[in-house]
Design a protein around this nucleic acid. Sequence first.
DNA 1: CCGTATCCCGACGGATACTG
DNA 2: CAGTATCCGTCGGGATACGG
Lengths: 140, 140
Amino acid sequence: MEVTIGKTRAKASPEVVKGHFPDKFKTMQCPITNVLDRISDKWSIHTIILLGKSEKLRFSELMKGIHGISQRMLTVTLRSLEEDGLVSRQVFAEIPPRVEYQLTDLGRSLLSQLIHLSEWASENMTKIFESRERYKTEKV
Amino acid sequence: MEVTIGKTRAKASPEVVKGHFPDKFKTMQCPITNVLDRISDKWSIHTIILLGKSEKLRFSELMKGIHGISQRMLTVTLRSLEEDGLVSRQVFAEIPPRVEYQLTDLGRSLLSQLIHLSEWASENMTKIFESRERYKTEKV
DNA sequence: CCGTATCCCGACGGATACTG
DNA sequence: CAGTATCCGTCGGGATACGG
């Protein structure tokens, strides 16, 4: 597995090469990096894991389930998950409006990976915290 | 597996509750979130994967291997990986100086998780890119 | 209820210059 | 070589207000 990071633009104009890279160049990065960037997003991970626990969830249910997320970030997160085909969105023409989200097959296949990752985190966080403490005191 | 996101401060003073949360409160988040935050960092993932390919690597070798990273971010990344006990750092008292980094056992156990994740990414990125294209055209 | 639009602050991280 | 220190632009994302 070859992972190329950074911008893989062939030959950009010099004034673009220097300085910061605008958003439009992000899509031209290494594909794996590109995909991992989305996946590794904090809110995305938790949204997917939460959706994995229930078949379908409404917007407001997700808000309650993901402690600390703002309405804006939930919307943004759900849109990009939908864009990537990981989550499906169904709007009901009712009053009051109802919108239901659920994982797609692709989303569920990612879920299992994320569960492994978060299990690793929960199994090893004690070691990590101990290591941080050790590092802190050594620094003093 | 219960995942609590966000700030779990019990009762902060009102003027702190409102507005942004400074760095010092990040450590008081949910442990799993806390650990995942570090792990899901773009540069950390690639540093770990690169270190997984070789037994030991020098600072300059890592610089070359991780395309696009700055000296500053490599230093910062390596320090936090060392702090978390995922990477070990060995300094040789030579002129010119030599510093070698390698994964710890903990780091290697994380590596296998990350490899699974990036294999998932490379297996499914076509689907994801197709989905993004579809989304884009639907939006028009 | 489920968003979108706007404002705005502060963290992230690149560029650069300097050391042991 | 392997960093550290500083400056500073960019942008993620919270708060808020409003729309269908």
